[in-house]
Design a protein around this nucleic acid. Sequence first.
DNA 1: GCGACAG
DNA 2: ATCTTGTCGC
Length: 236
Amino acid sequence: MSSPTLHAGEDKRNAMIAVEQALALQAELAAAVIRHDAFVDPVLRVTGVDVAYAADGERIVCAAVTLDADTLAPIEIATAWGTADFPYVPGLFSFRELPIVLKALEQLRQPPQLVVCDGQGIAHPRRFGLASHLGVVCDLPTIGCAKNRLIGTHDPLKDERGSIALLVDADETIGAVLRTQDGVRPIYASIGHRIALDSACGWILRLARDYRLPETTRAADHAVRMALKEIEGPPS
DNA sequence: GCGACAG
DNA sequence: ATCTTGTCGC
């Protein structure tokens, strides 16, 4: 196969061409997604990734934070700067953020064992959201944990933490809607790659014991904001 | 034709 | 995602 990511020029014509290529590449890579637990090592560390955009609308930064899978204490953090070379198109989101995510993950001295992404896994029109794209490209177990729904329908769920409802699209279960805190808006979990949905939900629920979002996402989000502050609002 | 639409 | 202050609610 060709390169796992693409570039899109500034003008709309090149952007449209890139979108066409992305759709073809997406179909090719989506076929490689493994939907069951396939870990090569016991999971001792869990890594969270998040991307933030600078106010100038040009630069973007990604933070990858690895936590001790048992204590959830931070073990290592890495950041990477870059630019958004692909437009934001719902359904092609991974082509916009994956490049910078890969760059950040490469900075980690300890290789990731399980990655939790800020976005969908297979809960996607073509079953290939950011988490799945990252998983297939890096051949890593990944979980998609989004704050909002992209597609799919589900039954209403109870208000208590731990309540769950399956996300369904075209008669296929593509993920789960999880209430991680009592009376708090649920999150959308789906498998990215090499993990089963129930395992993914188990991880998310444990990582989100005290807050709505998993600690991996919170840690990465915090790190990414810190990085932004260093160039945006330098203490003068 | 009219919405919906991860970050 | 980001631009942004105060403010309603637990």
